[in-house]
Design a protein around this nucleic acid. Structure first.
Lengths: 254, 254
DNA sequence: GCTGAGGATATGTATGTACAAGTTTGATGT
DNA sequence: ACATCAAACTTGTACATACATATCCTCAGC
């Protein structure tokens, strides 16, 4: 007996949450609108209040809705958000959000590293790297451009992989690369010529840039990447509590 | 109407969560240790499983613990980076980075809340709010425009404060407002006319936008704000580790 | 037309019960 | 000594119920 099919019947609360997320995303419930009451959802899904409240709680945690004693639950002004702790893979995030991820590879190359990239990957200037340049889609609509750079040691797995077929992250995991830690820096940039063409927006359109470096347990750099999101397709949220500091920090530029 | 003392008996789940947070923080439960089982906590607090699971859910959402079917709940090694106070306050962040913060108030007003803002602050449409619009400086150079909105309950402290003199956050703390939790959403926008004029950049320049909502322990919304940074003056970084869990919150079924 | 009281309704909290689905543990048989 | 299996945990999910507490709406009274 192996792992068996990951078939797993979907839980009720999960199903309710997905229904609401989808309805909100597709505009069936606009920002400011009231969601159906818990009682209505209970009837609609032939469930009980528990699962309904679990779903609501999930959505509240994602910042999608706001609720309170006596008040109807309302939809907040929102775009999809990645929860900071589990942003690892674009594909994975899409699946969690019930979106179909897509990718159109623009370029895959094995080439010598230029100076700044070499420094970022902690290799020598001119050492070979594997670089990938892809347009990423959400439900077949352009959403992000992705520039990935790997030292050859890890990049060789990428060269042997069809980059149009899915998640590189998952492929690396399956190849036994132990991705242990990642560091992300978020800022804003204007779309350059390539970005603008692929994302179908004017040059200079504000994009949300996420630069990521991933490490093994031993501290070797696996990846140095630059993702640029259309800000109306994705944003980042994080929660912090007094006394329980968040892992995010604001860094001063030059 | 007598607003009455904000006395409010503490809820069981809140008390349990506080106990566990404190115990973890003070080292009674070390990273890797197992927490008491739900059954034990139920007995210890003479409660039922619902509140215990709500507390666990809160801690899981804060990334303090990890749990799963069949497995005991274990304490994670919490990565301390920047304290909550440093992240929430521009002034404190500047001081920590050895930068002189500055502010030039553009506008302070008491006005009725428009619809979306009212929803965000969880008050009624048209209820009075206090809004502040400031240009923030780093070493006397424009770096960020700040739009703050408070319900009157908290905003009255702001009205009585010289907004050119420093940190509103610190003032609120000193006035006894208990700022407990904050949620931030980060994305990118182009500079509008006001932004461009104050930051001395062309209209449309990409800015890093941070929308923040701050809450009291009881869940009341203190603030809903919109900060826009020049991306070459500030950015966000974040570290995550593979083992560490998502910040998805889930609440017990009960 | 406006105000205020009160009921209807909404979400938040708490308890009890039952079962599902993993993990750990220990007894048993070889 | 070792592998195997079953019992005894653990946490996850679900349902029924009750009450607390805040909001909204209706309608009587002025």
């Amino acid at each position: 007996m192996t792992t068996g099919p990951r078939q797993r019947t979907r839980q009720q609360h999960d199903e309710i949450a997905r229904y609401l997320r989808t309805a909100i995303r597709e505009g069936s419930f606009q920002p400011g609108d009231e969601l159906p009451s818990e009682a209505e959802l209970t009837r609609k899904f032939s469930s009980s209040r528990g699962p309904v409240r679990q779903a609501m709680s999930a959505l509240r945690g994602e910042g999608l809705i706001s609720s309170g004693r006596g008040r109807r639950t309302v939809v907040l002004d929102n775009v999809l958000t990645q929860s900071f702790d589990d942003v690892i893979s674009f594909s994975q995030w899409c699946h969690a959000s019930d979106i179909v991820p897509g990718q159109i590879t623009q370029r895959v190359a094995r080439e010598p590293a230029e100076k700044s990239l070499a420094a970022s990957l902690r290799i020598s200037d001119g050492d070979p790297i594997v670089s990938v340049f892809r347009l990423r889609l959400m439900d077949d609509v352009p959403a992000m451009v992705e520039r990935l750079n790997y030292p050859l040691e890890f990049g060789r797995h990428v060269l042997a992989f069809d980059t149009d077929s899915g998640s590189i992250y998952q492929e690396l995991i399956e190849q036994g690369v132990d991705i242990n830690r990642a560091s992300r820096t978020i800022d804003a940039v204007g779309a350059n010529d390539d970005d603008a063409r692929l994302l179908e927006v004017p040059v200079g359109t504000p994009l949300l840039r996420v630069r990521r470096r991933a490490f093994t347990t031993t501290g070797d750099v696996i990846e140095s990447s630059d993702d640029r999101y259309l800000p109306w397709k994705a944003s980042f949220t994080m929660n912090s509590t007094r006394g329980n500091p968040s892992s995010m920090s604001l860094i001063s530029g030059t």
